[in-house]
């Protein structure tokens, strides 16, 4: 296997791969932030059943959660220029590929995080809302002081899973030509004629970061458990 796999080459590849980590992080951070903001709006639409928006939101969520992310990537990549040309007469073919990739992930995250938020808010028992009203708080006050903190706690496990899966999902960006970790691995492969080693190095990086993420959020959850006790009503 010496020709095929060499530990030395694998370790060699690490620093080069880590250089491309910023692309991955960029995608994750932008997608998560915008996902939280608009996902919250989406959750509110669904929870309050606002007339027309509810139906649109439901269809949107069904599509985003029902189709594979790889297809969404390509549809955005090929479809957005066409859409922008038809709607605005704007030719965006030459825009950076990363723009399309991030857009696709943002759209996807909005749907997923929206559902996570909705589930988390629904997981807080109605009795908490009633208690808030009975004490004289307005709906908004009840939501901010009582529901929201408990919803965050309830939604944290799901959010962690989603975050890790987003992080791993960015690995598809190389298919569209972005130079993220895997893209860089392939570059190294073509340069050195040994592609297996950088792949293994990339896998190790992914594993380490995923484990770190899960560990960090696990700690946060444990802290919440100590303070609030187990929330099972």
């Amino acid at each position: 296997m010496g020709e095929f796999f060499s530990l030395e080459r694998t370790i060699d590849a690490f620093p080069k791969l880590l250089q491309s980590l910023n692309v991955t992080f960029e995608i994750v951070i932008v997608a998560t932030c915008l996902g939280l903001i608009f996902g919250f709006g989406l959750a509110m639409i669904r929870l309050f059943r606002l007339p027309v928006l509810y139906q649109i939101a439901s269809v949107y969520i069904s599509f985003m959660r029902g189709t594979p992310i790889i297809i969404q990537l390509y549809v955005v990549y090929y479809g957005l220029p066409m859409l922008s040309m038809n709607l605005f007469g704007l030719n965006i073919n030459s825009w950076d590929k990363l723009f399309f990739i991030i857009t696709a992930f943002v759209l996807n995250e909005i749907a997923f995080i929206g559902e996570i938020i909705r589930g988390a808010i629904l997981a807080v028992p109605v009795s908490q809302t009633e208690a808030g009203y009975s004490v004289g708080l307005t709906g908004l006050q009840t939501f901010v002081h009582i529901i929201l903190p408990q919803a965050v706690r309830a939604g944290l496990p799901n959010f962690t899973v989603d975050l890790v899966s987003l992080f791993q999902g960015t690995s598809l960006a190389f298919l569209l030509g972005a130079v993220d970790i895997i893209g860089r691995a392939r570059m190294i492969g073509t340069n050195t004629a040994h592609i297996f080693d950088p792949y293994v190095a990339a896998a190790v990086i992914f594993i380490i970061i995923s484990v770190l993420l899960e560990f960090a959020f696990g700690k946060i959850q444990k802290k919440g458990d100590v303070v609030y006790g187990r929330i099972h009503s």
Partner: peptide, 24 residues
């Protein structure tokens, strides 16, 4: 309430305080 209706994310003091400070 029959099932106490306490705010789970607030301490005993916090539970009593919330109505006083925010609502009144």
């Amino acid at each position: 309430f029959q099932n106490y209706g306490l705010f789970r994310n607030k301490t005993a003091l916090g539970n009593v305080l919330l109505g006083l400070v925010s609502a009144r």
